[in-house]
Amino acid sequence: MANINELKYTYSLRIADNAWILSHRLSEWCSNGPLLEEDLALTNIALDLIGRAQTFYNYAAQLEGKGKTADDLAYRRNERQYYNNLLAEMPNGNFADTIARQLLMSVYEYYFFMSLQNSKDETFAALAVKTLKEVKYHMAHAADWTVRLGDGTEESHEKAQQAIDNLWMYTGELFEADETDTALIAQGLGVDNPSLHSLWETHIKNVLEEATLRLPTADYMQTGGRKGVHTEHLGHMLGEMQYLQRAYPDAKW
């Protein structure tokens, strides 16, 4: 079995990847928002996520102990070496698609970091406390917009429902526990993901109800992010994101 530092490294990397990939998507909204104010709101969320990615990459690099930097981890891995959940890499689509992704993800993160606060790893616990403050805001922002869109016009209602329905099959993997999770859970270091599922679903259901939307059902849940098996979307994102780092490997920016 992997030693404890390797497990924590993987864990920190996963958390960082989720934040990094999702922040990239949100940053794509810059200058494309439906209202100037909302443009700025989405950018604020993106900036929170970039900050989070940086801290968890730093911690991962420290745990790995090979002298890598957060940038090495963010920019110099191949597609199969990113461990974010598939939901994070889903394209922005229309505003309802983005809000649905934000809702599903931030409610999950809320319960995840609530639990990670109690980790016996002091760094994880401390970072979770800080992260939770941001997540609460992201969750409120997403929930409020879900209600406005769901209970807005006929068109917005349809778009909001469609968005939730489309993304639903990517929510299953959020609650999986693989060997890394299981080993860390056993030692009181990691979050018991499967146990968060019912809390998450109840929370989502309540928001959707207020938004006059229905909770979707899925025949099958997609999986693979934690193993580095992604959707086609990720490769394109990385191609763009890593362009300068790859084209000028010796350069400092």
Partner: peptide, 20 residues
Amino acid sequence: TRAPSIRAKQILLAKIQDEG
């Protein structure tokens, strides 16, 4: 989306946001 480092991306995004 092509900013070459975490720091560069953070700063650029914050700057553009300021402009908005």
